[in-house]
Amino acid sequence: MSNLLEKIEHYRRLFADQVSRVKEARGVEELRQLFLGRKKGHLTLLFEEFKTLGPEEKKSAGRMLNELKSEIQNRLAELEQKLQAPARVEQLEDLTLPGRQLYWGAPHPITLFQREIERIFVSMGFSVEEGPEIETDYYNFEALNFPPHHPARDSWDTLYINDRLLLRTHTSPVQIRVMEKKKPPIRIIIPGKVFRRETPDPTHLPMFYQVEGLVVDRGITFAHLKGTLEYFLKALFGEKIKLRFRPSFFPFTEPSAEVDIECIVCGGQDRNCRVCGGSGWKEILGAGMVDPQVFKNVSIDPEVYSGWAFGLGIDRTAMFAFQIPEIRQFYENDLRFLRQFNRR
């Protein structure tokens, strides 16, 4: 008999201890199972034991046992209610206070613009290639049909490392590297950093970004070049932009073209426009049909294959698109400049 009373007292203390630690609703259920579980609950077992007692003993033990059971039931129910009740939210008086905002880092505008360009070309089935920034004279010039000591090199003023190595002045050497490795059909764009020996001023820097495109296959024509670049520039600047193709010269294309787009700042209406100089047109990219000599340099037969290529300055195009007055701002990395592009 005293044994059962002691057990009741033990479980009373055990329950008190355990119930004080319950922090979640599922803890309530665990405790209910532990104490009141239909087969192995502590109290269920005590009631089994209670049945074996004599009538006198049943009297006092029964009362205690029932008290404990209802105490446990009440306590658990109370706790359950408390834990399951929706957490009462502090009532705010002023809901117009600002919310909690998260700062999301800003991609560099060059990265952003480069990705826009890549996206347009990837949607046309182009793949993206890269190449080294330190190049040899062969890849940067010779293979691209720049004769040694030719004045054509003057427009690609070069930073040299030694007699053999230089910093690439354009992304075009990657054309050569890809065509050396891969047979047509080729359909690639090549974004990357390029370097020129230019003294910094508002529109020139010794380092900037270019993206180059190259298509080589049977039956590729100048009309394909036009169609693709028109689509690209409309995708970038909007359906209504006007374009102009005019003849130009690059050693690695023949025929060569330059593409102007209508000045989006003045629309050709301002004689003193600081963006287009009053001409109404802004030079945006250089292009052309791959020069047969370039094909010969990479052992592609120009009688069988033809191709087109273009190159565009990412910085300058971004300057034009966003009307950024100075190219230098891209590389000053002023957060007040950079963070604006987060909203684009």
């Binding site: 999301w104 880092g105 800003a106 991609p107 060059i110 990265t111 590389y331 957060l335 950079l338 963070r339």
Partner: peptide, 12 residues
């Protein structure tokens, strides 16, 4: 970006 870092590009 998610960690709140902004991207910069410096001269080589």
């Amino acid at each position: 970006f998610h960690h709140g870092f902004d991207e910069v590009i410096n001269f080589s």
